[in-house]
C-alpha cells in the first residue's frame, strides 16, 4: 500500500448545519487521510458525503471543528493562503460542473491555464492526452459540454480534475452513470493516479465494486458521523451491522432510510 504515516488531511470535530442550524448534516466528523492514501467514503444518499468534501475544499465553511491539510488549519486561513492550498487539489464534481461557455479542451486545460503552467497550444495537447486517459477521442476537443452525454461529461470532469497533476484529488461519484466497462476504466485510472503519481485520493461512491478496487481504506458516514473506518479487508470481516447492511444492500437493518409515503 502506498500509505505513509504523515496525515495529509485531518478532520476533527467538524460540524456543518444548514437553514440557520435547524438542519444538522455533519454532527461531529473525525477523519484522517494519510499522504498518498486512497480513502473511499460510503454512506446513504443525503448523509452529507458531498458536504464533507466541500468542507475540505473550503467551498463550505464548517460551523465548528478544524480541518488540517499538511498540518495547517484551513478553516482559519486567509483567502490568499487558502488559494495556495487549492493549487494542489483537483475535484470531480458529482454533476461534472463543466463550464458550458467553454469548449471541452478549455474545460480540461482550465487549471493549467489558470495556474499559467503552459501555453495555450501546449494546454490543448495536454487536454487531448488527459481525454485519452478517460477514454475520449480527440474529436470532442472543440465540442461544447452540452453536446456530450452525461457519462462523457463526467469523464471530461475527471480529465479536468487530474489535468494539473494535483497532490490531493477528490472524486464525487466518479463511476455513477457509466457502463460497467467504462466504470472499470475509470477505476483503473484512479488507481493509477493514486499509486503511480502518488496523489492522495478521496472518493465518494455507492458502487462497492469500485470502492473495493480503488480504496485502501473505507469510511462510512452515517447520521453526521464517521461510524466506521478501516481497510477494505476489514470491511468484509467486520460485524458492524451498519457496514454489513450497506455493503450487502439490504433494506432491513439498523440504517433506516427516510421513506415517505
Amino acid at each position: 500500500m502506498s500509505q505513509d504515516n504523515a496525515a495529509k488531511i485531518t478532520l476533527s470535530g467538524v460540524r456543518k448545519t444548514f437553514a440557520g442550524g435547524r438542519k444538522v448534516v455533519l454532527d461531529h466528523v473525525d477523519l484522517e487521510v494519510g499522504k498518498g492514501e486512497s480513502l473511499v467514503i460510503i454512506g446513504g444518499s443525503g448523509t452529507g458525503k458531498s458536504v464533507t468534501i466541500k468542507c475540505m475544499l473550503g467551498l463550505l465553511k464548517p460551523d465548528s471543528g478544524a480541518i488540517y491539510i499538511d498540518g495547517q488549519d484551513v478553516t482559519q486561513m486567509s483567502e490568499g493562503a487558502r488559494e495556495d492550498i487549492n493549487r494542489q487539489v483537483g475535484m470531480l464534481f458529482q454533476a461534472a460542473a463543466l463550464f458550458d461557455s467553454l469548449p471541452i479542451w478549455e474545460n480540461v486545460a482550465f487549471g493549467l491555464l489558470a495556474r499559467k503552467m503552459c501555453s495555450r497550444a501546449d494546454a490543448r495537447d495536454i487536454a487531448a492526452e488527459k481525454l485519452r486517459l478517460v477514454g475520449l477521442a480527440p474529436d470532442v476537443l472543440d465540442l461544447s459540454p452540452a453536446e456530450l452525454s452525461g457519462g462523457m461529461q463526467k469523464r471530461v470532469g475527471l480529465a479536468r480534475a487530474i489535468a494539473t497533476n494535483p497532490e490531493i484529488i477528490f472524486f464525487d461519484e466518479p463511476t455513477t452513470g457509466l457502463d460497467p466497462i467504462m466504470a472499470d476504466v475509470i477505476n483503473n485510472l484512479i488507481v493509477h493516479v493514486n499509486q503511480e503519481i502518488g496523489a492522495t485520493a478521496i472518493t465518494i461512491t455507492h458502487d462497492m465494486v469500485s470502492a473495493r478496487k480503488i480504496g485502501d481504506r473505507i469510511a462510512m458516514l452515517y447520521d453526521g458521523r464517521i461510524i466506521w473506518a478501516g481497510s477494505t479487508d476489514a470491511m468484509d470481516h467486520t460485524d458492524n451491522p451498519y457496514i454489513q447492511q450497506f455493503i450487502h444492500g439490504r433494506a432491513d437493518g439498523p440504517i433506516k432510510m427516510a421513506v415517505r409515503r
Binding site: 466541500k54 475544499l57 473550503g58 467551498l59 488559494e83 487549492n86 493549487r87 487539489v89 483537483g90 475535484m91 464534481f93 454533476a95 460542473a97 463543466l98 463550464f99 458550458d100 461557455s101 482550465f110 487549471g111 489558470a114 495556474r115 479536468r160
Partner: peptide, 21 residues
C-alpha cells in the same frame, strides 16, 4: 441568468477548485 446557472450547477465552485477566484 448566466452566473445564477453557474452557481446552481456548481460551476462557480469548480472555478475555486481550479485556482480561479
Amino acid at each position: 441568468a448566466e452566473i445564477g446557472t453557474m452557481r446552481v450547477t456548481e460551476q462557480v465552485d469548480a472555478l475555486t477548485t481550479l485556482s480561479t477566484n
